[in-house]
Amino acid sequence: MIKFKINDKEVEARTGWTVLETAKEYGIDIPTLCHHPAVAPTGSCRLCMVELKEGDWSKLVASCIYPVKEGINIYTETPKVHNVRRWILEMLLASCPASEEIRKLAEKHGVVSTRFPIHDPDQNCLICGLCQRVCEEVVGLSAIAVVDRGVHKKVGAPFLRPTDICVACGSCVTICPTGAMQEIFDTVRGKPELPLTQLA
């Protein structure tokens, strides 16, 4: 067992655990969006940032991927953590204005408005990539792509043509934290009348 501290409280973790997994075990709340126990973490939404302190030195790490180490000191509610969290929630409010889940999450952390411009009021996909990861890692297929990069990044199918790789299992819809996949799903799978090739 590995011993370390979260918010000055002694905790124990198994080798290979992340800070987030340990925090969950002890009922310490750290907000997350792109994390799901069924798939490998990628640390992309940055909502789960926590502060790692050692004497005067400190830095912020993503708790969902930070491996636990003996003797480290983790703080989940510091001014630096709050600053990052507040800005990210504002970014999420602007990027997914149609998502009720995100509005509630932001509100829970005291964020009710955003300083970012809203470009698409109907958008609710935050491009966390959970859908793509579950399709690849759990279902064992690769029907969904995260395409393009930077501000143009989006979820879709190659050349935006429906793909017969999709077996319509619905895992992506289930794992999606905002319900955005419901709509994207149809563009990946195509209209139901298209033949679906069942892959072995």
């Binding site: 793509q132 792509a145 990069r149 190659p158």
Partner: peptide
């Protein structure tokens, strides 16, 4: 490489 990933590469 699955076509989806090739497409990700080509658009990245």
């Amino acid at each position: 490489v699955p076509l989806t990933q090739a497409y990700s590469v080509a658009t990245f």
